[in-house]
Amino acid sequence: MTLLLMAAGSGSRYGKLKQFDDLGPNGEFLMEFGISDALKNGFDHIVLITKKDNVSFLEDHLRNRLPANIKLDVLAQEITDLPDGCTFEGERQKPWGTAHAVWTARDVINGPFAVLNADDFYGQPAYENAANFMRAHKDDNTYALVGYTLKNTLSEHGSVSRGVCQVDGDNLISVDERLKLEAKDGKVIDEDSGNEYTGEEHVSMNFWVCKPSIFEKIENDFRAFLNSKDLGAKSELYIPKIIQDMLQAGEIKVKVVPSGGDWFGVTYASDRETAVSYLQKKTNAGKYSSPLWPNE
């Protein structure tokens, strides 16, 4: 089974590249705890999407730590990586978004895979539940969202973006991207739209189980995206939109798999202290080895 981690962000609100911040008790990156959880649940192929300048560093860093039997691919998400026949003449510094990050791995993944953010902590049970789903749906075109509860994914230090889900039983109906969610007076408010939420809603934290069929869909949508008259210097193509379009077209089914555990992110620099404390407590409780990798 394959785990794809997206680590090409710039960390503009965090103040530095949070993917490479030494949050663990022995200087581990946050993504290393997720990789450890994945390996414990049968994942044997790690794909990391990052910036070109970080490829060699991450290859060396992870290969020296991962067991020898684990396949590792570290790939660069590059603005110039476009579908055949497509061009982009404008100026751009920002990557094309999470869907493009996934598409970057099209040549190294040929089976079911889980995809998530490298700068989020998803909790050990989430990987177990995702792995069980992948084993149960190995041969069909059913995708999954590992879902969390909105109120448990907010930051005390500012607004956050979340995909708010409409769910029927364990079936995902839709995902509504909200970019400025913040807790206020016992409710959760989206500052952009003014929408109010109870906080009990299911949300996407970008932990998906996908099949290779997504690569063709991303490429087709990316072509249309590049030809859009509204394409701007910061326009992006997101995974939830791709999956939702496939869902509404009847091309796939998407199940909501309970995360079963904790989540935290490091959106703001002030989130760092919480992350360091949490990982130390988990290590002290024996949930993680110290050091995390036996060959360190």
Rank of each mutant, 00 (worst) to 15 (best):
E182N: 09
T98C: 03
A101S: 14
I252C: 12
D22P: 15
A275H: 02
A131K: 05
E201G: 04
K229T: 11
L39E: 03
N295K: 14
S228C: 02
L82F: 01
D84G: 09
V160P: 10
K253Y: 01
S290L: 08
E91G: 10
L48M: 13
L72A: 01
A126S: 15
T50P: 10
E59G: 02
G15K: 11
L116C: 14
T283E: 07
V203R: 10
E201T: 07
L75P: 01
N295L: 04
T267A: 06
N117T: 09
E196D: 02
S10Q: 13
E78G: 01
E200D: 15
P95M: 13
T149Y: 05
L5Q: 06
A68R: 09
V47G: 06
R272Q: 11
K211V: 03
R63A: 14
G286M: 03
N227I: 00
E89G: 12
N152I: 00
A114P: 00
D185H: 13
E59V: 13
P240Y: 02
R272D: 02
Y238K: 14
F264Y: 12
A118H: 09
G260C: 11
E91N: 11
Q93N: 13
L58A: 04
D139F: 10
I173G: 01
W103D: 05
K151D: 08
T198W: 07
H202T: 07
A118E: 06
S270M: 09
D168N: 14
P212K: 06
N110R: 09
D21Q: 12
N110P: 00
I109D: 03
L66P: 08
K187G: 01
D185Y: 08
K282S: 03
Y278D: 06
L179Y: 13
E156A: 08
K94A: 09
P25R: 05
I49V: 15
T142N: 13
S270F: 01
A224Q: 14
C86E: 15
C210L: 15
L247E: 05
I109Y: 06
Q166E: 12
F57A: 09
D120F: 07
A144F: 05
Y268I: 03
R65Q: 14
L5C: 03
K187W: 07
V167Y: 10
Y278P: 00
A114Y: 04
V115W: 05
G158A: 03
S36F: 09
E216F: 01
T80H: 10
S277W: 00
K229E: 15
P258E: 08
D271R: 08
V102S: 04
G147V: 11
D245H: 06
L58S: 07
D21C: 08
W293C: 03
E59M: 10
H100P: 00
A224R: 13
L17A: 06
E216Q: 12
W96S: 07
L3P: 07
A249N: 12
G11A: 06
I49M: 11
P258C: 06
Y238A: 12
K282D: 00
V203E: 08
Y288G: 06
T267L: 06
V203M: 08
V175P: 02
E201C: 07
Q166T: 14
I189R: 13
S193A: 06
K16R: 14
S36Q: 10
F121E: 07
N206Y: 08
F20R: 15
Y288M: 06
I173M: 12
Y268G: 07
K217Q: 15
K211F: 01
I243C: 09
G232V: 04
E91W: 05
